[in-house]
Design a protein around this nucleic acid. Structure first.
Length: 562
RNA sequence: UGGUCCAUGGUGUAAUGGUAACACUACUGAUUUUGGUUCAGUCAUUUAAGGUUCGAAUCCUUAUGGACCAACCA
């Protein structure tokens, strides 16, 4: 008898609940969302959450998602950012329905402003920003009306036309909504709708010298595109009242705004302002520095879109303050990379091992040695095997040998045996040191019957080491990255957040690798056995091979602590 | 001292008035030719106090704690 399949449906997040309700009661037939970045910086892991949410929703429900650049502030925006944002969204695996810009709507937005003026709901204010701030009041005290608040509709229309025509200098006038200077919501105290900026816009060039503010553009753009669910982060909650007010007064399509809590991740910062500082002040090499939490940084570091999407899925969507452990992101990337990464052997800090009783001459290269076969990925047998040369001189990791080993040291030590991955079991017979007492060489003997795959020695060893053949190992550069900050939440610490940067976030080392790494490409992710996951860096060129450490392997060994 | 939003293990989410669930982390143990992977197990009376109810994480009240709001930024 077949058991009833217990397909435990993943529970819905609060936005999905709203959508399912809207769909069920016929409020909408399809769901339209938008991802609205401002092209003034690169996308980061926090944006990935929003991207996965917005695009994910319309993959799950009928409808589509627009990409809309919120480009209403020409002085900070640039096409470089537009290009990087498009690339990052694509790389994450999402496709937008329409590529749009708030600046596409500047003419319409201007008409909306005129409508408000005609309705007596907006006026031209000559107050300076300081005067305006003084009039604004505080959260606990009401504000005062601007002396320009009661200009006639005709005068306002005339002034606004002249503003558009360029008759006034920057900052000399604004268009303000006429709402209520005593409103409990500070944003409703006659917010600025348009300001004068004689600045070149990345799309509209010099056509405009007045630009709408966020509140005058965002909801209206949503409305023009008939976005049904306009999803943003919690800091926009107070804006919702203004969002709704403008839609109501303008009598346009009623898009609705919903807010969720932005995701904070420990040991990093996700604020475009702070990330820009790190870039501009040289703390990192660029927006795509592998230490950056940007999508481009993560990509360069070796993260995969699958891992990032899985991460966003796992952290979910909610409204409460949060601080996600970066360990979860690392788990997600290890989980994916474990399935797809090619295993390779690389020795970082080599110590030479001479196998004194090894006399094989094959395969006849004159140096002695043989070829062993090593699986490319034990998690995926379809990836097959590769050939690696073995000889009487190899390198192993210096830390894999201890002259006086602690209790559960399963690696090499005098008189102790270990297996060399996919090759033989060896035993350490003698330790050679230089005058200063540094170990320069380990003399070992191997067990001829212990060849991997057809071991008849009957020996059982606890440890298996990675190694490279000293006679053909290639030299590579490895960039070992660690968390960018020493503290979980640098932004919340005393003083400048940059004081908490981890000075050891990058260590560049030389390492010795098996020659198969010469074929590495940007399509491949690697696991350097017993070390971590690595990805070719774009700085590699000519004969240079540079690898970024994506993440270490989980290390279950407690070390020497007894 | 105004308004708004939020409060469930160390972390992130679930439970939609009916036995607090899942994942990550951590710690045990098993398996392993990666101290990886895999597998098994351990870790909370839901911020507090009242109330409604046969029954409350869920509804109500109060308190407490946190976040956000006074750019011509978004």
């Amino acid at each position: 008898m077949e058991e009833v399949k217990n397909t435990e449906e993943r529970s819905l997040n609060f936005i999905e609940e709203i959508i399912e309700e809207d769909l069920k009661n016929g409020k909408y037939k399809q769901v339209l969302t938008r991802f609205p970045p401002e092209p003034n910086g690169y996308l980061h892991i926090g944006h990935a959450s929003s991207i996965c949410l917005n695009f994910g929703l319309t993959l799950k429900y009928p409808g589509y998602t627009n990409l809309r650049f919120d480009d209403t502030n020409p002085v900070t925006e640039d096409t470089e950012y537009v290009e990087s944002i498009k690339q990052d969204i694509n790389w994450l695996g999402f496709a937008w329905q329409h590529e749009l810009y708030a600046s596409d709507y500047f003419d319409q937005l201007y008409e909306y402003a005129v409508t408000l003026i005609k309705k007596g709901l907006a006026y031209i204010d000559d107050s300076t920003s300081e005067e305006m701030a003084a009039q604004k009041g505080t959260p606990t005290e009401p504000g005062r009306n601007s002396p320009y608040r009661n200009r006639s509709v005709d005068e306002n229309l005339d002034l606004f036309t002249k503003m558009k025509a360029g008759a006034f200098p920057d900052g000399s006038k604004t268009l303000r909504a006429r709402i209520d200077m005593a409103h409990a919501n500070m944003l409703m105290r006659d917010p600025v709708l348009y300001r004068i900026k004689h600045a070149h816009h990345h799309r509209t060039g010099d056509k405009w010298c007045i630009y709408p503010m966020y509140d005058m553009a965002h909801g209206q753009s949503d409305s023009i595109e008939t976005i049904t669910h306009s999803i943003c982060t919690m800091e926009f909650v107070p804006h919702r009242e203004l969002y709704d007010w403008l839609i109501e007064k303008l009598e346009i399509y009623p898009s609705r705004q919903y807010e969720f809590a932005r995701r904070n991740i420990n040991y990093t910062v996700t604020s475009k302002r702070k990330l820009l500082q790190l870039v501009n002040e040289g703390y990192v090499t660029g927006w795509d520095d592998p230490r950056m939490p940007t999508i481009s940084g993560l990509r360069r570091r070796g993260y995969t879109p699958e891992a990032i999407r899985e991460f966003c899925e796992r952290i979910g969507v909610a409204k409460r303050e949060n601080m996600v452990d970066v360990g979860l992101l690392e788990f997600c990337v290890r989980e994916h990379l474990n399935k797809i990464a090619f295993r390779r052997m690389v020795v970082f800090d080599p110590v030479k091992v001479v196998i004194t009783n090894y006399v094989k001459k094959e395969p006849g290269d004159g140096k002695g040695g043989e070829i062993v076969s090593v699986e490319n990925n034990p998690e995926d047998v379809s990836t097959g095997h590769r050939e690696v040369t073995f000889s009487n001189e190899i390198y192993i990791e210096r830390e894999d040998f201890m002259e006086v080993p602690p209790k559960k040291f399963f690696r090499l030590a005098p008189g102790q045996m270990v297996r060399l991955k996919s090759a033989y079991i060896i035993k350490c017979d003698e330790v050679i040191k230089d005058a200063a007492g540094n170990i320069t060489e380990l003399r070992c003997s191997y067990i001829p019957e212990s060849h991997s795959g057809n071991d008849t020695s009957g020996l059982k060893v606890k440890g298996t080491l990675h190694w490279v053949n000293a006679k053909d190992a290639i030299e590579i550069e490895v960039r070992e990255y660690d968390r960018l900050f020493r503290v979980e939440n640098a932004a919340a610490e005393e003083g400048d957040f940059k004081d908490y940067i981890n000075p050891d976030s990058l260590k560049t080392v030389k390492a010795y690798a098996e020659p198969s790494l010469l074929n590495a490409s940007f399509k491949d992710h690697f696991q350097f056995l017993r070390k971590g996951y690595y990805f070719l860096d774009k700085d590699s060129e000519g004969g240079d091979f540079i690898f970024n450490r994506t993440v270490t392997l989980k290390d279950g060994w407690k070390g020497e602590k007894q």
